[in-house]
Write a protein that binds this DNA or RNA. Structure first.
Lengths: 132, 132
DNA sequence: GTCTGTGCAAATTGTTTGCACGCAA
DNA sequence: TTGCGTGCAAACAATTTGCACAGAC
């Protein structure tokens, strides 16, 4: 891939993603940066997210309510996703026994590039709000 | 929710999903059943998938290349997703230490409803095909 | 000057929905 | 007879893309 030039808007997207612990969607990133960059467009947000993911600077967390969520923290950790409000929260790294995943590669002939543990349920706020 | 009546097409969808180890998308299910049910429509496939998921008879595996994938096997297990061809394969159950997830509920105030370990990389075929 | 970045709007595509009719109970 | 199930087509919504111009190197 050709070298990536510097861009104010892409830089702003990256630092936003790195400074934040919710895991914003493309549209949310757009909304947050729009005030400071009034001519920002959603297409640019998507294009830059694609590039940042390609560089490994940002990770796709998964689709929540039809929208992909992005994470600027690339060190390995797990996620909790609330089934009710859709919020995504960081969890400490959770993994099955060490070497267990590498063994899968050998056993099935896979090349393992990434793995993640995902927990779903109700976040604290939604749990409080719901009666049982 | 109101009681679900019997329906030939929904039954066929469920047994297809239960008899198959790939994890088909809505469209793939549609394609597979169309020959036997020529008047089947994609809207019906989506509606029935929604109901079957609601009943817990089918599970959403996640979005791969923009399409949700479905699994008719509901006993707990993990998945491998190929980053290249998008195929989804079953893995044995993988989980962090017992009780570890329950502990999260206490620690963060979450109600844990579900959890899954996902591995990504290249499947055997794609690994063979790719040169390094 | 060359080639990447961007705004804008149109196009694409997976999924949902409204409506009238068919069919199960 | 009641009301869920379905085909059909339109509606929706997230994302991608083509094009002409602006900006980085």
């Amino acid at each position: 891939m050709a070298m990536m030039r510097q861009s104010k808007k892409r830089d702003a997207m990256l630092s936003l993603l790195q400074s934040v612990t919710d895991h914003p969607s493309a549209d949310r990133i757009y909304q947050q940066l729009k005030p400071r960059y009034p001519d920002l467009s959603l297409g640019t947000v998507y294009r830059n997210l694609g590039q940042l993911c390609g560089q490994g600077l940002v990770k796709r967390v998964g689709t929540v309510n039809g929208q992909e969520r992005y994470d600027g923290q690339t060190s390995p950790h797990s996620h909790f996703i609330c089934n009710r409000c859709g919020s995504v929260m960081d969890l400490p790294r959770l993994s099955p026994g060490e070497g267990c995943v590498d063994q899968l590669g050998v056993q099935y002939g896979f090349i393992v590039q990434d793995c993640e543990f995902v927990v779903r349920g109700l976040c604290r706020d939604c749990a409080d709000r719901k009666q049982f």
